[in-house]
Design a protein around this nucleic acid. Structure first.
Lengths: 103, 103
DNA sequence: GTCATATTTCAACTTTCCTTGTATTGTTGA
DNA sequence: TCAACAATACAAGGAAAGTTGAAATATGAC
């Protein structure tokens, strides 16, 4: 993973609304949650929620599938892990102090 | 740590130049490195380097002290750990899959 | 004090991002 | 087919961030 790619993912995470949405999706589990549900969970208008969910999807942090009238978004834990690994292992030279934070 | 605070730190990380500078500072160790040295290491002009180092400092990711004519910046591993902890523990419900990435 | 070095600050410009409201697409059930 | 609903797409406005180059500040050497 290049710094540019990592920066793009971190940029997607660098917003309180998106952080809240991602948390909601992680708690929803592999099943995911409908866009409207996430919107309501974080107190965002549908349009705004769609904008931020798309940003998360572009960054590869969530997947999207249609289920009837609803769009179901689900968190991609592997992508989240990849960017954390980039910071911890590559960027921060695998600092023991940093690794300790994850335990 | 609130989502807003975490987002601010993640925003500071969400830039390839800053990611490269932070890596350089981490490798420099607790001693830190002069602003000019970091600038040269990542191929940035002094002005641009100063701008990004200040951004990292505002986010609490680096410290700054003067040594003669040079400004010495040093990475704050604890701050880096805190934001990773926020994502791993709080935001992502301590997902075992995510924790595994840090080991 | 004067000069050179190291870094920061500033202003101007460009680009990107976030929000809001409205229009549009896709889906379901009558 | 038509009406209702869920979500997205689009455009406009304003705010924030990054880049550049020139000027300013702080420090050390002479």
């Amino acid at each position: 993973m290049t710094d540019g790619q990592a920066a793009a993912v971190l940029g997607a995470l660098a917003d309180p609304t998106r952080l809240a949405m991602l948390r909601h999706l992680v708690r929803a589990g592999p099943e995911g949650a409908a866009a409207g549900t996430s919107a309501e969970a974080v107190g965002a208008t549908p349009s705004r929620a769609s904008f931020h969910l798309k940003a998360l999807e572009r960054a590869g942090l969530v997947t999207c599938r249609r289920d009837g009238r609803s769009m179901i978004y689900a968190a991609r834990m592997d992508a989240l892990g990849a960017v954390i690994s980039h910071i911890v292992d590559d960027c921060c030279a695998g600092s023991p102090a940093l690794r300790a934070c994850c335990r």
